[in-house]
Design a protein around this nucleic acid. Structure first.
Ligand code: MN
Ligand code: MN
Ligand code: MN
Ligand code: MN
Lengths: 217, 217
DNA sequence: TAAAATATTTAGATGCATCTAATTTTAAAC
DNA sequence: GTTTAAAATTAGATGCATCTAAATATTTTA
């Protein structure tokens, strides 16, 4: 159907589009894809020829309906594989991304529907991100960044924004995990750092941390 | 490490080498890879540059020790994935090959060692073929083609030579499966066809069948 | 709003895997 | 042992995904 590269571009556009006010810019895509702007222009033209994106020169790029559908199916596969790796193969949540990045491109409808069944239709991946169903539908959780909480507020950790291995290992080390209850004990005006209670532990965390943790109040 | 194409070539050379008296010929490889002889020559040169094969112009190609090791690791992955698909995802043995052909190229040591563990270290794939261990070692079963059995002989079905979907579906339809006991009741001199007993059933099968079933006596 | 800075696109090139057509080498037939 | 047929290699081309360098468009700044 689509090449590995095309699929990765669609996914990148999908992710960038969520935060973009206008079309996704060439440079933003180049940064995300770890490539050069000129390469992005080439690929965007190709995706446009295939009606996966809407592209007008210098105006940035938007996913078309079919592009969005395709992107969501790749994301579905990526996240299902992540669940598989953690639940069945004893991978840690900081190890799964790289492998899922490859597995998401395997082409087989049956493979993914059976995997979904085998995993008992999970709704979220190991990082708390929602898993689209076969139609591309998924529920958006109403979640807040930890940094947006005020002193005294309490919530449950439901996701991470930064999924880098370094960040996830930091969280592991400090026993910060999905599902745990977090209370904001104090917030330092000067640098935004917080003193939090997570189960029995107390911990001071920087904005690098609070800006990358999602809480459901 | 190696490209998808390189890996597929190594695997093809490995399989062809088993039956070849001399080096694997360019045309044989082209046939196996569904490509043109000129493409094979190009690739073989590349593999030779990487010391994965020994190649002298017009003399055919042989796997080097490192090429053989690599081929066996890809075969290991292919067969482990086949077991996974059948045992865990309810694939039938005629559905697994195509998907495994893609999965075998996923690059992750941990993935494959954990998969092996998850599957409880299987020794054979769904077609009865041996699964090499992490070192590339595997036991060669002493097996005979059904066509080589004489009237009155009995054995266990331990493998299939032809793994095409058509053949496997034919076997399913006639309830011929791995592990079943087969007795040769009669053999027709004229066309080599056999009357066999498989559990409670009696069945006449052509040489197209008897030449593609492995029996352990 | 004109100049400067930044963003984006185009032009031209490379490496990979493939192809067709032409050439060369080896094997088979006479 | 020549000639002929088959097998293999080389030459030259294409499509894909990428790059660098140059050109052009847009945005920001003064
Ligand atoms: Mn990917
Ligand atoms: Mn994830
Ligand atoms: Mn393959
Ligand atoms: Mn098999």
């Amino acid at each position: 159907m689509f090449s590995l590269s095309e699929e990765n571009y669609l996914k990148a556009i999908f992710h960038l589009q969520k935060h973009a006010k206008a079309g996704v810019s060439t440079n933003a895509l180049a940064e995300e894809m770890q490539t050069k702007a000129s390469s992005v222009t080439d690929m965007v033209k190709k995706l446009s020829d295939k009606n996966l994106v809407i592209y007008k020169k210098y105006q940035g790029v938007y996913l078309s309906e079919s592009g969005r559908k395709t992107a969501l199916q790749i994301i579905r596969k990526h996240r299902l594989w992540e669940v598989f790796l953690v639940e069945k193969l004893d991978f840690t949540w900081d190890e799964v991304h790289e492998v899922a990045e490859e597995l998401e491109h395997i082409k087989s409808e049956k493979l993914i529907s059976e995997l979904d069944k085998f995993l008992d239709y999970p709704k979220r991946d190991p990082h708390g991100d929602p898993i689209p169903d076969a139609e591309g539908d998924f529920q958006v959780a109403n979640k807040t960044l930890l940094s947006d909480l005020s002193i005294g507020e309490t919530g449950t950790l439901v996701g991470v924004k930064d999924t880098s291995s370094e960040f996830l290992k930091y969280l592991d080390k400090n026993k910060i995990a999905l599902g745990k209850t977090i209370e904001v004990l104090d917030k330092e005006e000067f640098d935004g750092s917080m003193l939090i209670r997570i189960e029995e532990d107390r911990l001071r965390v920087s904005t690098m941390v609070t800006n990358n943790i999602y809480i459901k109040i």
